[in-house]
Design a protein around this nucleic acid. Structure first.
Lengths: 151, 151
DNA sequence: GCCTCCATTGGCATAATATTCCAATATAGT
DNA sequence: ACTATATTGGAATATTATGCCAATGGAGGC
């Protein structure tokens, strides 16, 4: 991935639906080589896909929660089971394995507080093997971008 | 936003570059009304934009860090100053105001550990007014989706 | 310093897609 | 049941993507 690829990537992080012609103009290429670069980035996996950014509140899920989870045991089996189970839960949009005391950080979207309680009781605790759950609600968004910094 | 709009939104979260014709087929509409719905969702702000999903490692920034920040004082002025400053830092992709002891949760991407140290010393601490910083590195990704759950 | 080879590029023709308009259909309120 | 309003589907047109081929540019060898 050279500088031109990175330029293309940043442009598409800003607006994934811009036309190839506009993209080509922005990175100073003609459309053909520009499109070829994009296709190569897709094939190589550097571009994992394209996603619409949606206002969760407008969609009907205005509450975002970050949940930190610790497992009771860390056997291969317990870990695998938790990770497979959590991946199946639709409300969990992201789940990261983290350094520190807590094992996982989850980003979860729900409709309201009662909905979050239901989520914890029916979706999380039913997985089993969880030692502790630490919940933080999102009050507000200061910044939210997809565009990676220039390297 | 009705069920059809939500279907459209989920489809575009899965693949923002699918053609309007395929989208229309998926939600059982003809292309014209489907495109009109998409445009309305864009105008109303329900769709905030479209972003390419990029492999940070392939791009050259393989280290993702979640940083929790507390401010020393919570005067209107100190808060505004911090938020404006953090929004200007390119390595900070997301910054949320959170409930709990810590005030903010930041998602940061860097090249490596020395790069993270530079980031904290030159970008974060120089902002001023920060009482504490708590760092957690991302070891691995269990799940990562843009698609909101069905409501 | 020149030449050769390989990767990348630009332009053109064609195919696919988006966009706009209008008539037809469906929906909600009275 | 009737009217007003919003939404739909289809066809014509404008944009855009795509694939092919000749041309260009740059790195390494002589």
């Amino acid at each position: 991935m050279d500088q031109k690829d990175r330029q293309i990537v940043r442009a598409l992080q800003r607006d994934a639906r811009m036309t190839n012609q506009d993209l080509a103009a922005e990175v100073n290429l003609s459309p053909s080589p520009c499109l070829r670069r994009v296709r190569n980035l897709e094939k190589s996996g550097a571009i994992r896909g394209y996603a619409a950014l949606v206002d969760e509140a407008a969609y009907g899920l205005p509450v975002t929660v970050f949940v930190r989870v610790s497992l009771a045991r860390h056997t291969e089996e317990a870990v695998q089971q938790f990770e497979a189970a959590v991946a199946r839960v639709d409300q969990v949009l992201e789940c990261f394995v983290m350094t520190g005391v807590q094992d996982y950080l989850l980003r979860v979207v729900v409709a309201d507080l009662p909905d979050y309680e239901r989520f914890v009781r029916r979706r999380l605790h039913t997985i089993g093997g969880i030692a502790s759950i630490d919940t933080s609600f999102v009050y507000g968004v200061v910044k939210r971008t997809s565009v990676l910094p220039v390297v």
